[in-house]
């Protein structure tokens, strides 16, 4: 699967109403460590089919970042049934993320 671009417009549809877990990477283009997270997120999206994977640009969706108390990027939140289930602050490994899905 490819990585979805999540915005204010499709957040409800793609994340809150999703069936199954959704992995969201909160990032910004100016953020150095986010660039290290990005290939990890891409590779997760390629590898799995039991969860959606998306990215939220915090510059464009500041209210979504605020709603989920994202105060440091990258932050990864895994949503289950529309609710945040697990949060990783800072660059984290593929294994750490995948472990939370099982």
């Amino acid at each position: 699967m490819s990585v979805l671009r999540i915005t204010n417009n499709n957040f409800e549809e793609e994340v809150l109403k999703a069936e199954g877990p959704v992995i969201i990477d909160f990032y910004a283009d100016w953020c150095g460590p986010c660039k290290m997270m990005s290939p990890i997120i891409d590779s997760i999206a390629e590898e799995i089919n039991n969860a959606k994977v998306g990215k939220i640009n915090v510059d464009e969706a500041q209210d979504l970042a605020a709603m989920y108390n994202v105060m440091s990027i990258p932050t990864i939140i895994i949503f289950k049934d529309g609710k945040p289930y697990k949060k990783f602050v800072g660059v984290t490994s593929k294994e750490n993320i995948l472990n939370e899905l099982n």
């Binding site: 910004a28 953020c31 994202v70 105060m71 990027i73 932050t75 602050v89």
Partner: peptide, 14 residues
């Protein structure tokens, strides 16, 4: 990650 940060350049934006 809830107001305690270790990186001004990464998190200053918030």
């Amino acid at each position: 990650g809830k107001g305690v940060s270790y990186c001004a350049i990464c998190d200053g934006f918030f």
